[in-house]
């Protein structure tokens, strides 16, 4: 079922073949400059992540023992950290952790959330009611604290971080899909699909999913931004990802103590990278929501 979900999602997004990719990008730029800038930032970091080994001037975990805490220079563009590692290379490499955690976490959230939303929205009844109450109940826990506590309680591996973020994020998608399904349930095409004797799974995934998925898709970028932020926060607190790993949150953690002694570069650059990627994802997500939900903004 998971693979089906994702392939349906792709089909939805790549529909309407009369426009080339290039035309679509130009259209997006004019339609929502915010989304376009966001997409640009995401692609930039995506490129850093993919081509890290060609772009890094040094190995990310190579120690230059005689160059501990060197300020930025032509040799070390962003300086070196407390272990004598090259911060520039580490910041580039860190993009891999950003995507490496956010993408699987969001995919997991979609894989859990979409079927749950489809099923509860279509069936309704007690299970639906109970589940929605449960999701409401989750809101009394601040999301950061909940994520921290669960990761700490269930074991501090990278995989675990991904799973916890994905699970905690799935209610968002379940809710969006559910409300769309509720609106669609009594529509003619669903009724006729039922009358034609389609099995429930076909109605859910073939008939309802393509029409109910738009709202969930519009949320993905914003949720990815959340995942990047929370995973970096975990690393900053030393939970999940540990110190010499070139992850941005972990690097900020290492730089924290130098902040009040003046070695600003250790924490500054990974922080800037983190903000940019999260900002890019948020801008793209915000722009997409604006486009997909025309009520949110007046047309010009």
């Amino acid at each position: 079922m998971p693979s089906e979900t994702t392939s349906m999602a792709l089909r939805e997004v790549t529909a309407e073949p009369e426009f080339s990719l290039w035309q679509r990008i130009i259209g997006l730029t004019r339609r929502s400059p915010t989304a376009a800038v966001g997409l640009g930032i995401i692609l930039f970091f995506g490129m850093l992540a993919l081509m890290a080994q060609y772009l890094m001037p040094h190995e990310p975990e190579l120690v230059y023992a005689e160059r501990v805490l060197h300020p930025p220079s032509s040799e070390h563009l962003f300086g070196t950290d407390g272990n004598g590692m090259d911060i520039f290379s580490r910041v580039i490499y860190g993009a891999r952790f950003g995507f490496g955690i956010a993408i699987p976490a969001v995919v997991l959230a979609l894989v859990i959330g979409i079927p749950v939303g489809l099923w509860t929205g279509y069936r309704g009844g007690m299970v639906d009611e109970a589940l929605m109450r449960f999701f409401d109940g989750l809101r009394v826990f601040p999301s950061i604290i909940l994520a921290l506590a669960v990761v700490a309680a269930t074991g501090q591996s990278l995989i675990n971080v991904v799973i916890v973020l994905g699970v905690l994020d799935s209610p968002v998608f379940a809710r969006v899909v559910r409300s769309e399904v509720l609106a669609l349930r009594s529509s003619v095409f669903v009724e006729s699909a039922i009358a034609a004797g389609n099995p429930t799974w076909r109605i859910l995934f073939i008939h309802l999913l393509p029409n109910a998925i738009q709202g969930a898709m519009a949320q993905t970028a914003v949720r990815a931004a959340w995942a990047v932020r929370i995973s970096a926060t975990l690393a900053f607190l030393g939970i999940g990802i540990q110190a010499p790993t070139p992850e941005w949150g972990a690097m900020i953690r290492q730089g924290a103590e130098f902040m009040i002694s003046g070695q600003w570069w250790v924490a500054l650059f990974p922080g800037v990278a983190l903000i940019l990627l999260v900002l890019g994802l948020n801008m793209f997500g915000d722009g997409m929501q604006e486009i997909l939900n025309p009520r949110s903004r007046a047309e010009k």
Binding site: F19, I26, G27, L28, R30, R31, I291, E299
Partner: peptide, 10 residues
Amino acid sequence: FISRDIDNRV
């Protein structure tokens, strides 16, 4: 009613 679609067509 003047609006733009996802590809910025009016």
